[in-house]
């Protein structure tokens, strides 16, 4: 368990994998603080993905693996954003896992 420090000085608990301990404590400043840990500056496209991640979780009660994330984003925001190349550029390395983390979701069960 570690602590995430927000810009306004408030603190949030993280689990051992660096994911927000409580989905409901998420806020945009929390996402910004999490992004700073990854040296990411959040663009409009990042925010769109982050909000769709939260919408996916609210709807299906699970964090998406890569394939369903791509499909879901393509359905809701078009295939320009909803494709794996673009998501890899925005969230380098492991896009489904990283964007889930910034969105305050629990760690996906299977990061396939």
């Amino acid at each position: 368990m570690s602590i995430l420090l927000l810009a306004d000085g408030s603190q949030l608990a993280l689990d051992k994998d660096g994911f927000l301990a409580d989905f409901n404590q998420w806020s945009e400043p929390a996402a910004q603080a999490l992004a700073a840990l990854e040296n990411l500056t959040l663009s409009d496209a990042h925010w769109q993905v982050i909000h769709l991640q939260r919408q996916f979780y609210a709807e299906f009660q699970l964090a998406p693996a890569m394939r369903p994330l791509v499909k879901y984003i393509a359905q809701h925001a078009g295939s320009e954003l909803g494709n794996s190349l673009r998501l890899n550029q925005l969230f380098p390395g492991s896009p489904a896992k990283l964007s889930a983390r910034l969105a305050g979701l629990p760690k996906p069960n299977n990061c396939l």
Partner: peptide, 15 residues
């Protein structure tokens, strides 16, 4: 319990 029904709705998303 975790909501299995919500998870079932995700099946089409997973192909």
């Amino acid at each position: 319990q975790k909501n299995l029904s919500a998870n079932l709705q995700a099946l089409p998303m997973f192909g």
